[in-house]
Simulated assay, not measured.
Amino acid sequence: MRVVRFHAPGDVRIEDAPEPSPGPGDVKIRVRACSTCGTDVKILNFGHHHIVPPRVMGHEIAGEVVETGADVSGWAPGDRVQVIAAIPCGQCAECRRGRMTVCPNQVSMGYHFDGGFAEYMIVPPNVLAVDGLNRIPHGLSFAEASVAEPLACVLNGQNLASVGEGDDVVVMGSGPIGCLHVRLARARGAARVFLVDLNRERLDLAANLVHPDAAICAGPGPDAAKPSSAPGSAYGSETDVVDAVLKLTEGRGADVVITAAAAGAAQEQAVQMAARQGRISFFGGLPKDKPVIALDSNLVHYRELTIVGANGSSPQHNKEALRLIAEGAVPVADLITHRLPLQDALDAFGIVARGEAIKVTVEP
């Protein structure tokens, strides 16, 4: 079979590998869709400290069962399934308290175990032990089901930030995660959702799909200053993002600000544009060489702001994400702008790196 395998930073190969056989506690699946994300590009370029090469990449996985181990029950060939990416241990103090997203013993598909950029893969017992193999609802495509994993992460972030009815929400970053944040905020009853990005083309691409109430381009360059073709209010590159949000909210600021971008400046601006008793989600992690920001703690103090992190998702978040997609509360089919075969996976990474797509799905 063919796989996409990481060997070293800058060295990812599409190559032949033996088709795997399940052990007693394993489930073997035929991968039907494995979506890409920015993390795959980071692994391609820099590797990851949890990856010991060679390793088959891919963690946004959907497929169908082809074989089960002797000790596995409840699954049969032909079952359509989605696989969690982050696998908690289920046994530690955090897991026992229901805090599976911060399990210190967490392992991951595509990192500690071979992932979904392959024709076939093994779902290890670790996944089954925490109920992390999920049935895909009837009528939902494999490609849509593969987007349940990033939506599960978004769901965790919005739960922690208490996004709800009547909120004005700012989403900073218009990549696939930002688009999912816009859609989920709407599903949760947000009054208005504003989308911010540095890149005018990427912002327009996203805004024409998810239709924010305003699209704010804060990026440098002459193209960013042009009027947006996206629906809603549009702001060019000369725009002060904080000022724009304050004007849109009649001076109050946003009830929730979500930084779905790996930028310290976005986190600093988020604090400045938050309304009194606003909630701020530091959803996107910062580069490891630039993890420190300037924080006006008086704004946090006097406005009674809440700042929360968000790290991955739990098995339960994945189940909820599948339900939201299947019920149409959070549509994702139109966010999959590119579908490529396995042999073009490296092209998929390039498309993601250049910001030319919303979601790119590899279909072995």
Rank of each mutant, 00 (worst) to 15 (best):
V3C: 11
V12D: 05
E15N: 08
E19H: 06
P20Y: 04
P20F: 07
P24C: 01
P24I: 00
V27A: 07
K28E: 08
K28I: 01
R30H: 12
S35A: 15
K42P: 00
I43T: 04
I43G: 10
V52L: 09
P53H: 07
P54D: 09
H59V: 08
I61W: 09
A62N: 10
A62K: 05
G63K: 08
E64M: 07
E67I: 03
G69W: 13
G78E: 07
G78F: 05
V83P: 02
A85H: 14
I87M: 05
C92D: 14
C95A: 01
M100C: 00
N105P: 00
S108R: 12
M109D: 04
G110K: 05
G110D: 06
H112V: 04
F117L: 15
L128W: 09
A129R: 14
V130D: 03
P137K: 03
L140P: 11
E144K: 07
S146V: 03
V154I: 15
N156S: 10
G157M: 10
G157Q: 10
E165R: 04
D167Y: 12
D168K: 01
V169Q: 04
V169K: 10
G173V: 11
H181E: 13
R183L: 15
L184S: 14
A185C: 13
R188A: 00
L195Y: 06
R200S: 09
D204C: 03
L209M: 15
A214W: 09
A215F: 02
P220D: 08
K226D: 02
K226N: 06
P231G: 12
S233Q: 12
Y235S: 00
G236Y: 10
V241G: 00
V241P: 14
V242H: 03
V242F: 01
A244N: 11
A244C: 06
V245E: 01
G251L: 08
V257C: 12
V257W: 04
I258R: 00
T259M: 08
A262P: 09
A266T: 15
V271I: 15
M273E: 09
A275I: 01
R276E: 04
Q277E: 14
G278C: 02
S281M: 11
S281H: 04
L286A: 03
P287L: 03
P291G: 13
V292A: 07
A294G: 02
D296V: 02
N298I: 01
L299Q: 15
H301T: 07
R303F: 04
E304K: 04
T306V: 09
A310S: 15
N311P: 00
P315G: 04
Q316H: 06
H317E: 06
K319H: 10
K319N: 00
L322K: 13
R323L: 05
L324Q: 03
I325H: 05
G328W: 15
V330K: 03
P331L: 10
V332H: 05
I336A: 09
I336T: 11
I336K: 13
H338S: 13
L342Y: 13
A345R: 10
A345P: 06
A348P: 07
A357N: 08
T361N: 14
V362C: 14
E363W: 05
